[in-house]
């Protein structure tokens, strides 16, 4: 039996969580203490097996009223995949106009997420 302490990142409350678990072929959670919501409990289970994160970045825009369109993942990606996804984002260039929610890169690096725009960028020519 193993005791692990985590800080939940689901919301700004940042609950301190203490987990009792059995590490074998498959991690088995025996008890979770400190979570104040169900989402947090789900997150803890996920975090112990396959940690997932969201990321945000920017992509250069041509002919727009902003130089960069800010972007984010529309679903969490595996923590270990972040730099692979960033490498794809870094290569990308787009042209205005761009609207919030536009999918700019579908499933980067084979992940189950899209890179979507988080800012409207108007065409300025």
């Amino acid at each position: 039996m193993l005791k692990k302490n985590l800080v939940c990142i689901v919301c700004p409350n940042g609950c301190d969580v203490e987990v009792l678990l059995e590490e074998g072929q498959k991690t088995e959670i025996l008890a979770i203490d400190g979570c104040t919501c169900d989402k947090g409990k789900e997150w803890v289970a996920q975090e112990l097996t396959r940690p997932m994160r969201t990321i945000a970045s920017g992509i250069p825009v041509e002919d727009g009223d902003f130089k960069l369109v800010s972007v984010r993942t529309d679903a969490p990606i595996p923590l270990g995949k972040i730099f692979e996804v960033m490498a794809v984002i870094k290569e990308k260039r787009v042209t205005a106009p761009v609207a919030i929610g536009d999918i700019l890169i579908p499933s980067p690096a084979g992940t189950d997420c899209n890179i979507i725009a988080t800012r409207n960028v108007a065409f300025t020519g």
Binding site: G58, I59, P60, L68, K90, E91, K92, R93, V94, T95
Partner: peptide
């Protein structure tokens, strides 16, 4: 530049 200039994709 954070992202260097390059021809757009």
């Amino acid at each position: 530049n954070m992202r260097p200039d390059k021809t757009r994709v």
